[in-house]
Design a protein around this nucleic acid. Structure first.
Lengths: 309, 309
DNA sequence: CTGAAAGCGCTTACAG
DNA sequence: CTGAAAGCGCTTACAG
């Protein structure tokens, strides 16, 4: 009788002292069996070695543990079979809910696994979505970062703005589209020559800037798809003797440690991972407490202005 | 009757088809209650946002999941109360074992919590130790990295070697001591002026190199306590117009992405996080399978030679 | 080879 | 206000 109202002070104390003496630890699994709730949440992520997922996973774990839930960590990679196996084992272990973070999870295969194994378990997804009644989506509108970046540059009188994109994912495409739309909104002519596609990363950033130079276009700013790529861009510029931000302004995406460490420190679009983790955790807790939440929530990034633009 | 030998092919097929049709998922918690094993391992770490812990946690999770175990992630920070709470909840949830990674866990408070809540659960610890019969230790001898670094520099004919240390932790102290011993072994006079203490990080590295300059000592190499600090050291050198490695060779510790990204790419002591994660996982699995393992295992780092030394 | 019973450690009604 | 019984969904002996 855990903290029930109708129990005498006397009896309670007597019982507690005995428990204390024998170092009694209640079995959560026996309890779970009857109350049909395990107080554990499955957290699926692409790869927690990546700072982005690590930050979100950390925040989720901290937030949930402060609410009495534990986290089972699942790194699926790009492996469908792994995802399926995790979904099954989370069902067997009867997690109360699952949080999936990453755009990788927007696939029909994922949908099938989740529908099959966890048809009634609340699922909160970040940056991906499934057509399932028990699924709730929370997304960060990364393309909004382009709006912020272009606005920032234009306010400084810079109009020759190049854009370095990486993969043709849904958000990747949305970002280029927004880049084009934003230029037009500011009355700046759009040129295909000002956007270069590359592999994200240091090398990719260097190559992208190199490509831009080889095209002979004139640019006063480069927006890079992420911060590490932006560091690569800056490295190429430095080797060409161009100063940042005087000659070329650089803006990156993702406010990881790399941004601060860059020289000059990078101005970046911050997708607010802590806020994301907290929002995801609160959503699942709300669902488990029977409170209703909107099926779709949008989070907006913000611009962190440092030395590079 | 899961795959028991004495069951007819016939019966088995009949049963399986019914299970399949009803989409039956066995309850792991009901099973756990009777078999006294949950197939879940608690992994305690300081903070999974740090690349070092993220890498190890990732590898542990992958390795254990391939052996049929799930991981409950616990980020304790420096908070004793949190650690105590996690220890208790892991006991309640009846994890089969726990892995603790980080030197933070070498405290009497930790020992008390673990003894109280998990007296019979196998505990495998990395870089920390407790005087408990159910505890097994696996440590990476970081000081060995100093041996490798000094050897490498001396082989290049460099003898004026400075050392930047951070905190006075057990391993921090062991590293300076080894630095001194190694110099002596190579017949190089040791000077207190050649070691500077700093706060780890970019800023700390810059400050440390600055301090070295202000002391007016002559140096041809600097060994930094970690890679980010080494990047700071290189940044200071670059600002002073010194070339790396021509004028000054730089070696860091921890082979994170920062090392590769540095310019020039950093020569570093790699503490082999993947190997560490695998070793920790195998140890706990061995213990759970009833195989005996040595109470203490030592792992050695290796030198990754890149452009800075 | 198969089926029914007991029990894992809890909670939840339900009698006393 | 307290105590004994039933049941959560499995596995493990043990009869048939």
């Amino acid at each position: 009788m855990n903290n029930h109202p109708n129990v005498t002070q006397n009896t309670r104390e007597r019982v507690l002292s005995v428990l204390e003496k024998h170092n009694y630890i209640p079995s959560a699994i026996a309890k779970s069996l009857v109350v049909k709730s395990t107080n554990t949440i499955g957290v699926m992520t692409l790869d927690v070695r990546h700072a982005h997922y690590a930050n979100i996973a950390f925040t989720i774990e901290q937030e949930l543990s402060s609410c009495g839930y534990n986290v089972i960590l699942c790194n699926t990679g790009y492996d469908r079979a792994k995802l399926d196996a995790y979904a099954r084992v989370l069902a067997e272990k009867q997690v109360d809910g699952v949080i999936m973070v990453g755009s990788v999870f927007s696939t029909l295969e994922t949908e099938e696994s989740m529908k099959r194994y966890l048809p009634h378990t609340p699922i909160v997804m970040h940056n991906s979505t499934l057509r399932l009644p028990n699924m709730y989506n929370i997304s960060t509108e990364e393309a909004h970062g382009i709006v912020l970046s272009v606005d920032h540059l234009v306010a400084k009188g810079i109009t020759e703005i190049a854009y370095v994109q990486d993969y043709d994912t849904r958000v990747g495409l949305a970002k280029v589209a927004t880049y084009r739309k934003e230029l037009e909104r500011h009355g700046i002519p759009y040129s295909r020559k000002m956007v270069v596609q590359t592999v994200s990363g240091l090398r990719g950033g260097m190559n992208a800037a190199e490509t831009l130079d080889s095209r002979g276009v004139s640019y006063r700013a480069i927006i890079g798809c992420d911060d590490v790529t932006a560091v690569g861009i800056m490295r190429h510029l430095a080797r060409r003797g161009k100063r940042v931000p005087e000659d070329v302004a650089v803006i990156g995406f993702n406010n990881t440690v790399f941004s601060e460490m860059a020289d000059p420190p990078l101005t970046v679009v911050d997708n607010k991972e802590e806020m994301t983790g907290i929002t995801l955790s609160r959503a699942i807790v709300d669902l488990l407490k029977g409170r209703d939440i909107p099926p779709q929530t949008t989070l907006y990034p913000e611009l962190v202005i440092r030395g590079s633009a």
